[in-house]
């Protein structure tokens, strides 16, 4: 199934990527070619095969419930492009 410009626009919106029209077309071509290549997986028989999400076959480790982190709001928001006191500031959110 070829990738359409509509597909590109839809996933670009999901991924919050603004794309110029020329870029949309170029990415459509690229995706089409890459997905064409990965389509070779279609010929692979995976019936009865369990998926691998992790190569480490251990249960997740647990940490003790202790609030050990220091309070340092200034340091945590220091990198923010826009802030108000120790709040982060963003364009108005409309529900």
């Amino acid at each position: 199934m070829p990738v359409s410009l509509e597909d590109v626009r839809h996933i670009a919106l999901l991924a919050r990527l603004g794309l110029a029209p020329a870029e949309e077309e170029r990415l459509r071509r690229d995706l089409d070619s890459i997905l064409g290549y990965v389509a070779q997986l279609e010929s692979l028989d995976v019936s009865g095969v369990e998926p691998t999400a992790h190569v480490v076959d251990l249960p997740t480790p647990l940490r003790e419930d202790r609030a050990t982190n220091p309070e340092r709001p200034e340091e945590m928001v220091e990198n923010a492009p826009d802030r108000d006191r120790t709040f982060l500031r963003v364009p108005k959110i409309i529900e």
């Binding site: 990965v38 997986l41 692979l44 995976v46 095969v49 369990e50 998926p51 691998t52 999400a53 190569v55």
Partner: peptide
């Protein structure tokens, strides 16, 4: 599908 192929490669 890729995760399953990953199992076969392992």
């Amino acid at each position: 599908k890729a995760q399953k192929a990953r199992t076969l490669i392992r």
